[in-house]
């Protein structure tokens, strides 16, 4: 079966900066992969390459078997990649409803927008109360919910979730991961970028660890907990 996402020998960076050095990574259909590593290891860049925000200097990117190397981000989105970016990932000047409308109209067609809005607000009651409020006035947790609400209704083949738990209270992190689990159970593949490993490990099928822009370790989540701490903190010599 073709993997939803496949990066082959990808090197990428920003101008003179190389952030990735030959990364190969697959996300299978229906699989949940956690991408771990210290900050600066290149996790976010992998996410950006996977959604077309950063074009690889070398190597290829396939989405659902289609070669999208160097294509614009909108083609990744149309091929079924949803990317909840690190930090703010909603349009802060648009209202909650407009944020959703923008995406739904493109993904589902204008006829189904209202129905989809209904679904989204059913799933996230707290957003319903704020539907005419600019998204920038939402709390950090609500903003993440908003980006998840979009994905939940559209149920794209792949969701890339970059540091969704960053800076949030534990209780909200729990809720976000519950939603991610729901998405996963409905068939969406996940690529979860996390610095805080514990939640990610509970959800994913496979773990990929990055170090200095290269894949350092790959394996089952059961072994990962030990390995992660080891690699980050018990750096004896060359690790």
């Amino acid at each position: 079966m073709t993997p939803v996402l496949e990066l082959r020998d990808v090197s990428a960076g920003y101008g003179p900066f190389r952030a990735l050095f030959g990364v190969t990574l697959q996300v299978g259909d229906g699989e949940a992969v956690a991408l771990l590593g210290a900050n600066g290891a290149g996790k976010t860049t992998v996410a950006r390459v996977a959604s077309g925000l950063v074009a690889p200097e070398d190597g290829t990117v396939h989405v659902g078997g289609e070669d999208l190397t160097g294509a614009a981000p909108y083609r990744f989105a149309r091929a079924g990649v949803a990317h909840a970016t690190e930090g703010r990932s909603v349009f802060s000047s648009l209202t909650v409803e407009e944020n959703l409308r923008l995406s739904f109209r493109r993904a589902l067609g204008s006829a189904r927008v209202d129905e989809a809005l209904g679904q989204a607000f059913d799933a996230f009651a707290s957003l319903d109360r704020r539907r005419h409020q600019p998204a920038g006035t939402l709390s950090g947790g609500e903003q993440r919910m908003l980006s998840l609400a979009r994905v939940l209704v559209e149920s794209p083949p792949l969701l890339i979730a970059d540091e969704l738990s960053l800076g949030l209270a534990p209780i909200i992190v729990d809720e976000i991961y519950a939603q991610l689990a729901r998405l996963h159970s409905e068939g969406t593949s996940l690529l979860i970028v996390e610095q805080h490993v514990s939640h990610a490990l509970g959800l994913c099928d496979r773990v990929v660890m990055l170090e200095h822009g290269a894949v350092a370790w790959e394996g089952a989540p059961e072994q990962a907990g030990e390995r992660v701490a080891e690699r980050i903190f018990e750096h004896g010599g060359d690790g």
Binding site: L53, P73, F76, A77, F91, L102
Partner: peptide
């Protein structure tokens, strides 16, 4: 206006 790239992530050119 707010972010061309984030707009692209929504599938819009």
């Amino acid at each position: 206006v707010e972010s061309p790239r984030m707009t692209e992530l929504n599938g819009i050119r």
